[in-house]
């Protein structure tokens, strides 16, 4: 079953920002990464899913129900952690969590206690007096206290120290094992690589690709580095499948995806001094997606 299904979602704000024709789905029990540079449209997509803003066209369903028409109902089972957390300043942490829990028709006190312990939170402090990282921790507890079936995280790790980040990831993996589906938006690749099964890459408001992390890393991408006697022409390797060509004196490097024979023939046709063929790391693959087409 698909927990989230997004169909041709478009949101335009005047002329400038927004998202265009976004479609992807998140399956039940999956940790789905949503990755892209700042301003690509990750938050806009998430805010539309949560009906904080309304789409210009297209639609989305959560748990099989339209995310606008059935918003109050589906939000019972959603936990959301925004990228920047803001709460009522004059409230104590304790009061805020109680207030948050009062929206769900179940007893959350036990889970709050557990989460507060894991996150190492001081319940009697005023929200106003908390540091950014501690506010984020309140946000984490607040988002998870009702044991939601779908957890939506928008750049959740900013402000958390590495130790807390680690605890937070463990917490998420635990929730996932218990059956929660997670939509994890981030611009930090290593986080996504560590947690997620599949990713959607978004760039300038459009989905570039939706793939399994493992597929992205699979052998169909090769990184070539060739040392030749004399510098090669930049255009020498202009065949389909070759990307990110860099010529540095006698060394030429590029990423290749396609029929390996084509590129081998090209290499064989020239005088080479040395040759490296490697698996590219994810970072390089993403850079390839991120870079604006020239």
């Amino acid at each position: 079953m698909n927990v989230i299904e997004i169909n041709n979602l478009t949101k335009t704000y005047g002329k400038a920002r927004g998202i265009t024709d976004i479609s992807f789905h998140v399956e039940e029990g999956e940790i789905f990464g949503f990755i892209g540079p700042n301003g690509a449209g990750k938050s806009t997509t998430i805010r539309t899913l949560l009906s904080l803003i309304y789409p210009t066209s297209g639609s989305a369903t959560i748990f099989g129900k339209d995310c606008i028409q059935f918003a109050p109902e589906i939000k019972k089972e959603i936990g959301y952690l925004p990228s920047e957390v803001f709460y009522y300043d004059n409230m104590k942490v304790k009061d805020l969590l109680k207030y948050s829990a009062s929206f769900y028709k179940k007893d959350c006190s036990k889970r709050i206690k557990e989460l507060v312990e894991i996150m190492d939170l001081d319940l009697n402090k005023k929200i106003d007096d908390l540091s950014l990282g501690n506010k984020k921790k309140v946000g984490i507890v607040q988002g998870l206290l009702h044991e939601p079936k779908l957890i939506i995280l928008d750049e959740p790790t900013s402000g958390l120290d590495p130790l807390m980040q680690q605890k937070f990831f463990e917490l998420l993996e635990e929730e996932n094992k218990k059956g929660a589906t997670i939509l994890f938006s981030s611009h930090i690749l290593s986080e996504v690589q560590r947690l997620c099964n599949r990713v959607a890459i978004i760039k300038e408001g459009r989905i570039v690709t939706v793939e399994k992390i493992s597929t992205l890393q699979e052998n169909n991408y090769k990184k070539f580095k060739i040392e030749t006697a004399a510098p090669l022409d930049q255009k020498y390797f202009q065949i389909s499948g070759v990307n990110n060509v860099e010529v540095n004196n006698n060394v030429t490097s590029f990423i290749f995806k396609g029929n390996i024979n084509d590129v081998m023939k090209k290499i064989a046709a020239t005088e080479i001094a040395n040759l490296w063929i490697e698996e590219p790391d994810l970072e390089e693959i993403f850079m390839h997606y991120y870079e604006k087409e020239v």
Binding site: P72, Y87, S100
Partner: peptide, 17 residues
Amino acid sequence: REKTSEFLFTKPVARKT
């Protein structure tokens, strides 16, 4: 104004409520 809308309006309550 206080940017708490992301808290309140993601709770399971309708806007009219």
